[in-house]
Computed example of a mutant assay.
Amino acid sequence: MTASALTRPGERDRLSVKVREIDWTLVVLLSVVAGVGVAMLYSIAGGEWQPWAADQLVRYSAVLVMALVLALVHPKWWFRAAYPMYGVLLVLVLMIEFTPLGYVAGGARNWLNLGFIRIQPAEFMKLGLVLALARWYHNHTAQEARLSWKLLIPAAMIGLPFLLVAKQPDLGSAMIIGLTGAAVMFVAGLSWKIIVPTGVLAAVGTPLFVIFGMHEYQRNRVLTFLDPTKDPSGTGYNIIQSKIALGSGGFLGRGYGLGSQSQLEFLPERQTDFIFSTVAEEFGFVGSFSLLICYAAIILIGLRIASLSHSHFGRIAASGMVAFFALFVLINGAMVMGLAPVVGVPMPLLSYGGSSMMTIMFGFGLVLSTRVHRYSELPKGHGLF
């Protein structure tokens, strides 16, 4: 389908045209990663579909359909929904803190019990934040995005959910929210006159935050990261076992279903946070590196889709969605290799879990929508809708 054909309204709105314009290479790569995740969950369970692999396969099938449906939705609807979505999600995060509906799970008060369903608003806040920031930047000039007092508005949009989620305390989600917001501001053209002083301030303030701003168990994670051998059977156990699994795989791995660290349950959280260590143990450097190549290809294709959008909103939103996906990969990869503290960030589409998978595929639904509607332009407007 040629660009000229797609720019004709009667042609680009046809369902058959939209389906053909979906980036199926990206869909296949996402499915390959998810398929590896299902295979590893099957292996970890000793060659059984329960308790993880079957659920993961069903979940991915459902969210893949959801992403493909979202790909057909015109970006103007995401544009209109951006501020209301951000506002609703912010209210849900506040409800966790200030109403009895919030409850503790995994040591953090980060879940909301609505009776008929339990949700983790921080997961969806990452999407709402990207959409809201994309809409704000769409309505402002390049100079205002580069260096202006108006940048206090997107900074506040990032800072408020960051502080609320960090207080739960959910340091992993707060980190993703803050870094995703920073990535969006950078992509939008933020001036180095702001980036450099902010970076220096962050470098100086981080030790103070670790000492005075963290809970004791969070501080212990940082100290364990610096020297896991200080408490090898306690706080350092996870990292030590992860490194053993990574190293024992060698170049080609021990073989599918033959990873001793995971099969004998030495590796903690082997189905969630540390599943990449299981991949490295069973398939070695070749397998784990191939998986990282798939992740890199997904990120590069996503960024290319963002760059082709005629809409500034589409460019910023797609870039932001790819950025938070990339942050999941980088933080989890660094975490299991002992290059970063353990903060509970899963490996996207590989780790077992529903909320993270839904968030990621919702984001890629928007990326695919940007690809399908890349020739569409959106008007500027400052109203709520």
Rank of each mutant, 00 (worst) to 15 (best):
P9N: 14
E11L: 07
R14F: 07
R14W: 08
V17K: 07
V17S: 06
R20D: 07
D23N: 13
T25E: 15
V28I: 15
L29S: 10
V33A: 11
A34M: 07
G35P: 11
G46W: 03
G46V: 00
W49R: 06
W49Q: 02
A53M: 09
A54N: 05
Y60V: 09
M66F: 14
L70W: 13
L72V: 03
V73T: 05
H74W: 01
F79W: 05
F79R: 07
R80T: 06
R80P: 05
Y83D: 15
P84T: 12
Y86K: 05
F98E: 01
Y103A: 01
G106R: 06
G106Q: 00
G107A: 08
R109Q: 08
L112T: 02
N113C: 01
F116P: 01
I119S: 14
L127E: 13
T141C: 08
L147Y: 13
W149F: 09
P154H: 02
A155P: 03
A156V: 05
M157Y: 00
I158H: 08
G159W: 00
L163N: 00
L164W: 03
I176R: 12
A183V: 04
A183N: 02
V184A: 03
L190T: 13
W192Q: 13
I194N: 02
I194L: 15
I195R: 15
T198G: 15
A202D: 06
V204C: 10
G205P: 10
G205F: 14
P207H: 06
M214N: 10
E216F: 11
N220Y: 09
R221P: 08
R221A: 06
L223I: 09
D231G: 03
N238Q: 15
I240S: 05
I240N: 05
I240F: 07
S242G: 11
S242E: 12
K243H: 10
S248M: 12
F251E: 14
Y256S: 00
Y256H: 03
G257W: 09
L258M: 13
S260M: 09
S262Q: 08
L264D: 03
L267W: 11
P268H: 04
R270W: 08
T272Y: 07
S277Y: 09
T278A: 03
F283W: 10
L292T: 04
C294M: 09
C294R: 10
Y295R: 02
Y295V: 13
A296C: 08
A297M: 03
A297T: 07
I298W: 08
I299S: 02
I301C: 02
R304C: 00
S309W: 01
H310G: 11
R315I: 05
S319D: 02
S319V: 00
M321F: 15
A323P: 02
L330E: 00
L330R: 01
L330S: 06
L330N: 03
N332C: 10
G333H: 12
G333Y: 07
M337P: 01
L339E: 02
P341E: 07
P341R: 05
V343R: 06
V345E: 06
M357K: 13
F362Q: 14
L368S: 11
V372Y: 08
L384Y: 11
L384M: 11
